[in-house]
Protein backbone atom coordinates (compact mmCIF):
# COMPACT_ATOMS: atom_id res chain seq x y z
CA UNK A 1 0.00 0.00 0.00
CA UNK A 2 1.62 3.22 -1.13
CA UNK A 3 1.53 6.08 1.35
CA UNK A 4 -0.78 8.97 0.65
CA UNK A 5 0.77 11.49 -1.73
CA UNK A 6 0.77 14.47 0.59
CA UNK A 7 2.06 17.74 -0.83
CA UNK A 8 2.40 19.24 2.62
CA UNK A 9 5.21 16.84 3.33
CA UNK A 10 8.71 17.53 2.06
CA UNK A 11 11.30 14.86 2.62
CA UNK A 12 14.00 16.11 4.95
CA UNK A 13 12.13 19.07 6.40
CA UNK A 14 11.48 17.25 9.64
CA UNK A 15 15.18 16.52 9.98
CA UNK A 16 16.04 20.17 9.31
CA UNK A 17 13.53 21.27 11.95
CA UNK A 18 14.98 18.95 14.54
CA UNK A 19 18.45 20.14 13.57
CA UNK A 20 17.27 23.74 13.92
CA UNK A 21 15.92 23.08 17.40
CA UNK A 22 19.15 21.29 18.29
CA UNK A 23 21.16 24.35 17.24
CA UNK A 24 18.88 26.65 19.18
CA UNK A 25 18.99 24.65 22.36
CA UNK A 26 22.44 23.04 22.36
CA UNK A 27 24.38 26.06 23.69
CA UNK A 28 21.79 26.75 26.38
CA UNK A 29 21.62 23.15 27.49
CA UNK A 30 25.39 22.84 27.60
CA UNK A 31 25.83 26.00 29.64
CA UNK A 32 23.16 24.79 32.03
CA UNK A 33 24.90 21.46 32.42
CA UNK A 34 28.31 23.02 32.96
CA UNK A 35 26.92 25.43 35.55
CA UNK A 36 26.57 22.37 37.77
CA UNK A 37 30.20 21.41 37.22
CA UNK A 38 32.17 20.94 40.42
CA UNK A 39 35.47 21.83 38.77
CA UNK A 40 36.88 25.36 38.95
CA UNK A 41 37.99 24.96 35.34
CA UNK A 42 35.38 25.19 32.64
CA UNK A 43 36.99 22.50 30.51
CA UNK A 44 37.03 19.60 32.93
CA UNK A 45 34.01 17.84 34.27
CA UNK A 46 34.35 16.98 37.94
CA UNK A 47 30.89 15.79 38.79
CA UNK A 48 27.69 17.54 39.77
CA UNK A 49 27.71 20.26 42.38
CA UNK A 50 25.92 23.44 43.33
CA UNK A 51 29.09 25.20 44.41
CA UNK A 52 28.96 27.87 41.70
CA UNK A 53 25.41 28.76 42.63
CA UNK A 54 26.55 29.14 46.21
CA UNK A 55 29.50 31.14 44.92
CA UNK A 56 27.18 33.57 43.11
CA UNK A 57 25.47 34.44 46.38
CA UNK A 58 28.38 34.27 48.79
CA UNK A 59 31.57 34.32 46.73
CA UNK A 60 34.00 37.23 46.25
CA UNK A 61 31.94 38.67 43.34
CA UNK A 62 28.59 38.22 45.08
CA UNK A 63 28.21 41.84 46.18
CA UNK A 64 28.78 43.07 42.64
CA UNK A 65 26.24 40.65 41.21
CA UNK A 66 23.64 41.34 43.89
CA UNK A 67 23.94 45.05 43.25
CA UNK A 68 23.65 44.51 39.50
CA UNK A 69 20.70 42.15 39.91
CA UNK A 70 18.87 44.65 42.13
CA UNK A 71 19.34 47.38 39.53
CA UNK A 72 18.23 45.08 36.74
CA UNK A 73 15.03 44.01 38.45
CA UNK A 74 14.05 47.49 39.62
CA UNK A 75 14.57 48.88 36.13
CA UNK A 76 12.79 45.96 34.47
CA UNK A 77 9.74 46.18 36.71
CA UNK A 78 9.32 49.94 36.34
CA UNK A 79 10.16 50.04 32.62
CA UNK A 80 7.79 47.15 31.83
CA UNK A 81 4.97 48.67 33.87
CA UNK A 82 5.26 52.09 32.29
CA UNK A 83 5.74 50.68 28.78
CA UNK A 84 2.71 48.42 29.20
CA UNK A 85 0.49 51.32 30.29
CA UNK A 86 1.65 53.47 27.39
CA UNK A 87 1.21 50.59 24.94
CA UNK A 88 -2.29 49.76 26.20
CA UNK A 89 -3.46 53.33 25.74
CA UNK A 90 -1.82 53.58 22.32
CA UNK A 91 -3.39 50.29 21.20
CA UNK A 92 -6.80 51.53 22.28
CA UNK A 93 -6.37 54.68 20.21
CA UNK A 94 -4.97 52.90 17.18
CA UNK A 95 -7.47 50.01 17.16
CA UNK A 96 -10.55 51.66 18.68
CA UNK A 97 -10.08 55.27 17.65
CA UNK A 98 -11.66 55.06 14.20
CA UNK A 99 -9.80 56.07 11.06
CA UNK A 100 -7.56 59.07 11.48
CA UNK A 101 -4.74 60.59 9.56
CA UNK A 102 -1.95 59.89 12.00
CA UNK A 103 -3.01 56.30 12.58
CA UNK A 104 -0.37 54.68 10.39
CA UNK A 105 2.20 57.18 11.61
CA UNK A 106 1.33 56.34 15.21
CA UNK A 107 1.76 52.66 14.51
CA UNK A 108 5.06 53.35 12.77
CA UNK A 109 6.22 55.45 15.72
CA UNK A 110 5.33 52.73 18.20
CA UNK A 111 7.26 50.12 16.23
CA UNK A 112 10.16 52.48 15.51
CA UNK A 113 12.46 51.05 18.20
CA UNK A 114 12.18 47.69 16.43
CA UNK A 115 13.27 49.13 13.10
CA UNK A 116 16.18 51.28 14.21
CA UNK A 117 19.23 49.10 14.87
CA UNK A 118 19.79 48.82 18.59
CA UNK A 119 23.27 50.26 18.44
CA UNK A 120 21.95 53.37 16.71
CA UNK A 121 19.30 53.83 19.39
CA UNK A 122 22.03 53.41 21.98
CA UNK A 123 24.28 56.04 20.39
CA UNK A 124 21.39 58.44 19.86
CA UNK A 125 20.19 58.11 23.44
CA UNK A 126 23.67 58.63 24.81
CA UNK A 127 24.17 61.72 22.69
CA UNK A 128 20.73 63.00 23.63
CA UNK A 129 21.38 62.79 27.38
CA UNK A 130 24.77 64.35 26.83
CA UNK A 131 23.32 67.22 24.80
CA UNK A 132 20.69 68.11 27.37
CA UNK A 133 23.22 67.74 30.17
CA UNK A 134 21.45 64.88 31.89
CA UNK A 135 23.79 62.92 34.17
CA UNK A 136 24.07 59.28 33.25
CA UNK A 137 22.92 56.80 35.86
CA UNK A 138 20.04 54.49 36.70
CA UNK A 139 17.46 57.02 35.54
CA UNK A 140 18.90 57.28 32.04
CA UNK A 141 18.85 53.48 31.74
CA UNK A 142 15.24 53.44 32.90
CA UNK A 143 14.11 56.07 30.41
CA UNK A 144 15.87 54.36 27.53
CA UNK A 145 14.33 51.02 28.51
CA UNK A 146 10.81 52.44 28.66
CA UNK A 147 11.06 53.66 25.07
CA UNK A 148 12.64 50.46 23.85
CA UNK A 149 10.08 48.22 25.60
CA UNK A 150 6.99 49.91 24.17
CA UNK A 151 6.79 47.91 20.91
CA UNK A 152 7.35 44.63 22.74
CA UNK A 153 4.44 45.40 25.04
CA UNK A 154 2.37 46.78 22.18
CA UNK A 155 2.45 43.74 19.89
CA UNK A 156 0.70 41.19 22.12
CA UNK A 157 -1.71 43.81 23.42
CA UNK A 158 -2.79 44.91 19.96
CA UNK A 159 -2.97 41.33 18.74
CA UNK A 160 -5.30 40.63 21.60
CA UNK A 161 -7.40 43.72 21.04
CA UNK A 162 -7.84 42.90 17.37
CA UNK A 163 -9.42 39.64 18.46
CA UNK A 164 -12.03 41.39 20.59
CA UNK A 165 -15.00 42.59 18.64
CA UNK A 166 -16.13 46.15 19.16
CA UNK A 167 -19.63 44.90 19.86
CA UNK A 168 -18.60 44.08 23.44
CA UNK A 169 -17.97 47.64 24.52
CA UNK A 170 -20.82 48.85 22.34
CA UNK A 171 -23.12 46.47 24.21
CA UNK A 172 -21.78 47.83 27.50
CA UNK A 173 -22.52 51.38 26.38
CA UNK A 174 -25.91 50.29 25.18
CA UNK A 175 -26.48 49.20 28.78
CA UNK A 176 -25.72 52.73 30.02
CA UNK A 177 -21.98 52.34 30.75
CA UNK A 178 -19.90 55.43 30.04
CA UNK A 179 -16.95 55.07 27.68
CA UNK A 180 -14.58 54.96 30.64
CA UNK A 181 -16.65 52.35 32.40
CA UNK A 182 -16.96 50.28 29.24
CA UNK A 183 -13.18 50.38 28.97
CA UNK A 184 -12.62 49.45 32.59
CA UNK A 185 -15.34 46.86 33.00
CA UNK A 186 -15.40 45.21 29.57
CA UNK A 187 -12.43 45.96 27.34
CA UNK A 188 -9.72 45.82 29.99
CA UNK A 189 -10.75 42.46 31.50
CA UNK A 190 -10.97 40.95 28.02
CA UNK A 191 -7.54 42.33 27.16
CA UNK A 192 -5.89 41.10 30.35
CA UNK A 193 -4.13 38.12 28.76
CA UNK A 194 -2.61 40.42 26.12
CA UNK A 195 -1.59 42.96 28.72
CA UNK A 196 0.00 40.37 30.98
CA UNK A 197 1.77 38.86 28.00
CA UNK A 198 2.99 42.29 26.89
CA UNK A 199 4.22 43.12 30.37
CA UNK A 200 6.18 39.89 30.66
CA UNK A 201 7.82 40.34 27.27
CA UNK A 202 8.73 43.94 28.08
CA UNK A 203 10.13 42.76 31.39
CA UNK A 204 12.39 40.20 29.72
CA UNK A 205 13.52 42.66 27.08
CA UNK A 206 14.50 45.18 29.73
CA UNK A 207 16.14 42.56 31.93
CA UNK A 208 18.16 41.28 28.97
CA UNK A 209 19.18 44.48 27.31
CA UNK A 210 22.89 44.98 27.02
CA UNK A 211 23.74 47.36 24.22
CA UNK A 212 21.60 50.35 25.16
CA UNK A 213 22.32 49.91 28.83
CA UNK A 214 26.01 49.73 28.16
CA UNK A 215 25.87 53.11 26.42
CA UNK A 216 23.64 55.05 28.76
CA UNK A 217 24.72 53.69 32.13
CA UNK A 218 26.85 55.99 34.19
CA UNK A 219 30.30 55.04 35.39
CA UNK A 220 30.09 52.44 38.14
CA UNK A 221 26.42 51.66 37.49
CA UNK A 222 25.88 48.05 36.47
CA UNK A 223 22.99 45.83 35.48
CA UNK A 224 23.25 42.05 35.26
CA UNK A 225 24.07 41.96 31.54
CA UNK A 226 26.75 44.63 31.78
CA UNK A 227 28.23 42.92 34.85
CA UNK A 228 28.25 39.59 33.03
CA UNK A 229 29.78 41.18 29.93
CA UNK A 230 32.51 42.74 32.04
CA UNK A 231 33.24 39.40 33.68
CA UNK A 232 33.16 37.47 30.38
CA UNK A 233 35.73 39.86 28.91
CA UNK A 234 38.15 38.32 31.40
CA UNK A 235 37.20 34.81 30.33
CA UNK A 236 34.21 32.58 30.92
CA UNK A 237 34.18 31.46 34.56
CA UNK A 238 31.93 28.83 36.12
CA UNK A 239 30.08 31.35 38.30
CA UNK A 240 29.09 33.23 35.12
CA UNK A 241 27.51 30.05 33.89
CA UNK A 242 25.54 29.72 37.10
CA UNK A 243 24.24 33.29 36.79
CA UNK A 244 23.48 32.75 33.13
CA UNK A 245 21.54 29.63 33.92
CA UNK A 246 19.46 31.43 36.51
CA UNK A 247 18.76 34.31 34.16
CA UNK A 248 17.95 31.82 31.43
CA UNK A 249 15.57 30.07 33.79
CA UNK A 250 13.81 33.34 34.58
CA UNK A 251 13.40 34.14 30.88
CA UNK A 252 12.05 30.70 30.06
CA UNK A 253 9.60 30.79 32.94
CA UNK A 254 8.39 34.27 32.01
CA UNK A 255 7.97 33.47 28.33
CA UNK A 256 6.15 30.29 29.17
CA UNK A 257 3.83 32.19 31.48
CA UNK A 258 3.27 34.84 28.85
CA UNK A 259 2.49 32.18 26.29
CA UNK A 260 0.09 30.29 28.53
CA UNK A 261 -1.69 33.49 29.52
CA UNK A 262 -2.04 34.73 25.95
CA UNK A 263 -3.53 31.39 24.91
CA UNK A 264 -6.36 31.73 27.37
CA UNK A 265 -9.25 33.24 25.54
CA UNK A 266 -11.97 34.79 27.64
CA UNK A 267 -14.22 35.27 24.63
CA UNK A 268 -14.46 31.53 23.96
Amino acid sequence: MAAKYDLRVFPGFRAVTLFCLAILYAPLVIVTIYSFNASPSITNWDGVSLRWYVDVFTGPDSEKFKYAARNSFIIAIIAATVATCIATLAATAILRGGRFRLRTVSFGLVSLPLMVPEIVTAVATLIFFNAIGFDRGLLTILLAHIAFCIPFAYLPISARMQGIEATYEQAAMDLYATRTLAFRRVLLPLMTPGIVSGFLLAFIVSLDDFIITNFVKGAGVETLPTAIFGAVKQGIKPNIMAISTMLLGISVVMVTLSWLVSRRDATK
Binding site: L89, I127, I150, M173
Partner: peptide
Protein backbone atom coordinates in the same frame (compact mmCIF):
# COMPACT_ATOMS: atom_id res chain seq x y z
CA UNK B 1 -12.83 50.16 11.99
CA UNK B 2 -14.21 50.62 15.49
CA UNK B 3 -14.29 54.21 16.72
CA UNK B 4 -15.53 53.81 20.28
CA UNK B 5 -12.61 55.80 21.66
CA UNK B 6 -12.15 58.23 18.80
CA UNK B 7 -12.92 61.14 21.12
CA UNK B 8 -10.16 60.28 23.55
CA UNK B 9 -7.53 59.26 21.06
CA UNK B 10 -5.36 62.37 21.50
CA UNK B 11 -5.02 61.65 25.19
CA UNK B 12 -4.54 57.94 24.63
CA UNK B 13 -1.76 58.51 22.15
CA UNK B 14 -0.08 61.36 23.98
CA UNK B 15 2.09 59.25 26.32
CA UNK B 16 3.34 57.07 23.47
CA UNK B 17 4.02 60.01 21.17
CA UNK B 18 5.73 61.98 23.94
CA UNK B 19 7.92 59.09 25.04
CA UNK B 20 8.94 58.02 21.58
CA UNK B 21 9.40 61.51 20.16
CA UNK B 22 11.54 62.57 23.11
CA UNK B 23 13.46 59.34 23.62
CA UNK B 24 13.83 58.01 20.06
CA UNK B 25 13.08 60.58 17.37
CA UNK B 26 14.67 63.60 19.04
CA UNK B 27 17.84 61.66 19.95
CA UNK B 28 18.23 60.51 16.34
Amino acid sequence: QSDTYAGARVWLLLPAWATLLILVVAPV
